[in-house]
Measured scan of single mutants.
Amino acid sequence: MATGGRRGAAAAPLLVAVAALLLGAAGHLYPGEVCPGMDIRNNLTRLHELENCSVIEGHLQILLMFKTRPEDFRDLSFPKLIMITDYLLLFRVYGLESLKDLFPNLTVIRGSRLFFNYALVIFEMVHLKELGLYNLMNITRGSVRIEKNNELCYLATIDWSRILDSVEDNYIVLNKDDNEECGDICPGTAKGKTNCPATVINGQFVERCWTHSHCQKVCPTICKSHGCTAEGLCCHSECLGNCSQPDDPTKCVACRNFYLDGRCVETCPPPYYHFQDWRCVNFSFCQDLHHKCKNSRRQGCHQYVIHNNKCIPECPSGYTMNSSNLLCTPCLGPCPKVCHLLEGEKTIDSVTSAQELRGCTVINGSLIINIRGGNNLAAELEANLGLIEEISGYLKIRRSYALVSLSFFRKLRLIRGETLEIGNYSFYALDNQNLRQLWDWSKHNLTITQGKLFFHYNPKLCLSEIHKMEEVSGTKGRQERNDIALKTNGDQASCENELLKFSYIRTSFDKI
């Protein structure tokens, strides 16, 4: 039985969820670079991206490699990797027998973001014989899940209580170790020597080791999670996991709180800001991140802002960003909400898709409305799209047979046209069989910064309504002859009103 693990408890099935942008060198404390989270699957090609990484700022997932063999891993080693800020997950990587050479110096898994409450997941690794993470000293947050690894031993010899604050939620089941077939031998045991430290858990006094050649490092209890030197002297209180010299914040392997210019500090002093819960960055760093993602459509890219001495992905609820200094300031009234469309555009074809934009005031991208039916549609669209004030790209209304009016965009005031449909149009209306009105132009103002209007096959939309939009939106004169079809717009509506004058002759039985 794995020490510190839980057996036999019912657990939810383990679901495996399925960018080499360097964020800056980590400095003297770390020998390499800070790398983003990685999802490495199918083959070993991307694994080489770990070569210079000291910190993975995010998670590391290595999974679904069915053609790899043990010899493929023999020359692979990433000794610079010290810390993973989120979680480490391995799933069905064939041929991998140990992690001792792959990650010989991995010391800390912070667990800032977890995989279903777990910071370390080893699942269905069919050839893994031992973990071998002999320098792993601290899992700051989260638990361990090690399950269905039929060859995995050296679990009962690990004292997880020396690595985690609590072992109650560890789930370590259905491994070879369960069948008591392992016969784990710690260093020196074969020669009758006791080389590794022994600890007591559940009444068992057991030597602690990761492999037959690597003991588990056990520091004096007084050192807590700070770690200790090879001689057993406690590291500085700002260290986490390990250090090369005692009581020196510049000799830590990793930091308990924050890293700044080669030393570990309790908090980031001005003019620095907390970033990702582990390091200090200056304003320029946060500003660069903001600008890199301002026009990016890459998933996970955030326009970072500053709030409460932190550089964070977005302002919290009730705050909006001051564009001059990136500071989050309290909103006066309802907060603006910028919604970034991942692929640059979004099609609204149902109430469900409209709900995804609920509360958005600025759309960074283009909207395509293609709704053919739905219950209580006008009210639903207004509830979900009615706060949109600005669209950076274009607005396209296409084959939306259920629409009679666009009044559900009740606050839309600006279409920038930074991206144009077919390279020309910022407003595009095609084949809307029941569209009769755009907006009530006596109450609604709309500016279209650039781009043209396109109207074709809107049989109940009168040309007068379209011409009014040209005047109000500032697009009059931009359109070419064929942009607004004269014969297919309003051709099934009563669009022309003329005053009919009647004269009559009164007659009676005795007068003409």
Rank of each mutant, 00 (worst) to 15 (best):
296 S>F: 13
138 N>D: 05
96 L>W: 02
170 N>L: 10
111 G>S: 03
35 C>Y: 00
325 N>V: 06
150 N>I: 13
266 E>K: 00
86 D>G: 10
84 I>M: 01
203 G>A: 15
149 N>P: 01
107 T>C: 03
256 R>I: 08
33 E>M: 13
116 F>R: 08
34 V>L: 10
124 E>I: 00
317 S>F: 14
144 V>C: 03
136 L>S: 01
78 F>A: 08
259 Y>V: 05
90 L>E: 00
159 D>P: 09
157 T>P: 10
195 N>D: 12
149 N>Y: 00
325 N>I: 01
106 L>H: 01
288 D>A: 10
165 D>F: 10
157 T>V: 05
198 A>G: 02
157 T>N: 06
80 K>T: 12
290 H>C: 14
294 K>L: 10
155 L>P: 03
95 G>R: 07
102 L>Q: 00
277 D>N: 13
77 S>T: 06
105 N>D: 03
80 K>P: 01
269 P>A: 08
324 S>E: 10
45 T>F: 07
245 Q>A: 14
153 C>L: 02
240 L>T: 08
216 Q>G: 02
205 F>A: 04
225 S>G: 05
56 I>T: 01
83 M>D: 04
328 C>E: 02
223 C>H: 02
164 L>W: 04
57 E>N: 07
150 N>H: 04
207 E>P: 07
157 T>R: 12
266 E>W: 03
332 L>W: 13
58 G>M: 00
97 E>Y: 06
321 M>W: 14
272 Y>P: 00
46 R>M: 14
122 I>D: 00
103 F>S: 00
214 H>C: 15
259 Y>D: 11
305 V>T: 07
186 C>I: 10
61 Q>L: 04
75 D>K: 13
279 R>V: 04
33 E>Q: 09
288 D>T: 08
308 N>Q: 12
204 Q>L: 07
322 N>S: 14
48 H>L: 11
88 L>T: 00
150 N>S: 06
297 R>Q: 11
328 C>V: 03
67 K>R: 09
34 V>F: 03
289 L>A: 11
325 N>T: 04
249 P>N: 11
227 G>E: 02
64 L>Q: 02
77 S>A: 05
121 V>M: 06
155 L>W: 03
322 N>W: 10
36 P>A: 09
129 K>E: 09
35 C>K: 01
86 D>H: 15
209 C>I: 00
62 I>V: 06
269 P>G: 06
108 V>A: 14
255 C>T: 00
56 I>L: 12
245 Q>R: 06
323 S>D: 12
304 Y>H: 05
192 G>R: 13
324 S>K: 08
192 G>I: 02
80 K>V: 04
84 I>G: 01
335 C>G: 02
39 D>V: 15
131 L>K: 01
205 F>P: 06
102 L>C: 03
55 V>M: 13
276 Q>R: 10
224 K>A: 07
304 Y>V: 11
216 Q>V: 05
90 L>A: 07
275 F>G: 03
287 Q>V: 14
164 L>T: 10
89 L>F: 11
243 C>K: 00
167 V>C: 15
169 D>H: 11
293 C>P: 02
170 N>F: 08
115 F>V: 13
310 K>Y: 10
255 C>N: 00
272 Y>R: 01
139 I>D: 01
296 S>M: 12
146 I>F: 11
193 K>M: 13
62 I>Y: 01
235 C>W: 00
273 Y>S: 07
191 K>A: 10
257 N>W: 03
109 I>T: 00
270 P>Q: 09
134 Y>T: 03
75 D>T: 12
73 F>S: 02
100 K>E: 13
335 C>R: 03
198 A>D: 08
298 R>T: 12
285 F>M: 07
99 L>G: 02
317 S>R: 00
43 N>E: 10
239 C>Y: 00
43 N>K: 05
255 C>S: 00
234 C>P: 03
128 L>E: 01
128 L>F: 09
238 E>F: 09
327 L>S: 03
64 L>W: 01
326 L>C: 05
168 E>R: 05
336 P>F: 06
126 V>L: 10
42 N>F: 15
202 N>Y: 11
108 V>T: 13
33 E>S: 11
208 R>V: 02
42 N>G: 14
228 C>I: 02
326 L>Q: 12
28 H>K: 06
109 I>A: 00
295 N>K: 06
121 V>G: 07
279 R>W: 11
121 V>I: 03
97 E>M: 15
300 G>C: 07
106 L>R: 01
307 H>I: 14
135 N>H: 07
230 A>F: 15
186 C>F: 03
272 Y>H: 15
264 C>V: 00
309 N>F: 06
148 K>H: 04
177 D>N: 12
